[in-house]
Design a protein around this nucleic acid. Structure first.
Lengths: 127, 127
DNA sequence: TTTAGTGTCATAATACACTATGACAGTATA
DNA sequence: TATACTGTCATAGTGTATTATGACACTAAA
């Protein structure tokens, strides 16, 4: 996998797994890739994946079954939605707004952004 | 200054100075704080500020006058605008769009964002 | 000329992310 | 029972951001 240089790898792995869950590519109760497998896939050390999984376990996103592996927790999706939404609105959005103001980006520059938002207006709210 | 834990300090200092310039709080040709002074102000080591300034010099944002200090380069503002705009649109926006899609954020959730963008529609484009 | 302010360079120490590797216990299956 | 998976822990090494400090050359002003 291609990692962003500015963000810690173990956080990017967490983000990737969280994304898989939010997108429904890994379902509730399903087993996620083993620490060793994912490490090989992502060309990263076991311990780094282990750190991501430990973090997600703390966050209640995944659960461990001894000797078997990690599984998507029952309310992982709702948990993640709430957590990510809050992080986005509270931590990321202010910085985005600030940049838009300073760079004077208008509707034309951000046409795609507005379209993307509006295409969600008729979406059914996820659980 | 309060630093974000996830981003390198010398990059955050660069961002801060760049912001001061874009906002017109430091004018073209004006002297920026000395390496030592800013280090004290931000409660950071001299070398860390030095690294930020060296980076900005490479980027053509500031210039050094020996024995005197660093000054805002002639075309710093235009340079910065171009650079930041490109970084935002190419590197940050895709990730933002992705989050909006996955989290199904709509016009209501992002009301402020849309307002901010639209308030730039009647702005005169900066140089 | 002396003094105080600039940046610059070199060195050492600390902290932490990441890697590399080995060993061990639990679980499922042949 | 033997084998091959799981996660887990410990240890050691590497790279790099950051700190701490000292020394030096340049410039401006007293």
């Amino acid at each position: 996998m291609e990692f962003n240089e500015t963000k810690n790898i173990f956080l990017q792995i967490r983000d990737w797994v969280a994304d898989q869950i939010l997108q429904g590519k890994i379902l509730t109760g399903e087993k996620i890739p083993s620490v060793r497998d994912l490490a090989v896939d992502m060309e990263v050390n076991r311990n780094t994946v282990m750190r991501s999984y430990a973090l997600m376990e703390e966050e209640g996103i995944i659960e461990n079954k001894r000797g078997i592996g990690f599984f998507v927790a029952a309310d992982a999706k709702r948990n993640l939605l709430k957590r990510q939404k809050q992080t986005f609105l509270n931590d990321e959005l202010p910085s985005i707004l600030h940049q838009i103001e300073v760079l004077k980006l208008n509707s034309e520059d951000l046409q795609i952004l507005i379209q993307t938002i509006q295409s969600n207006d008729h979406e059914i709210k996820p659980d």
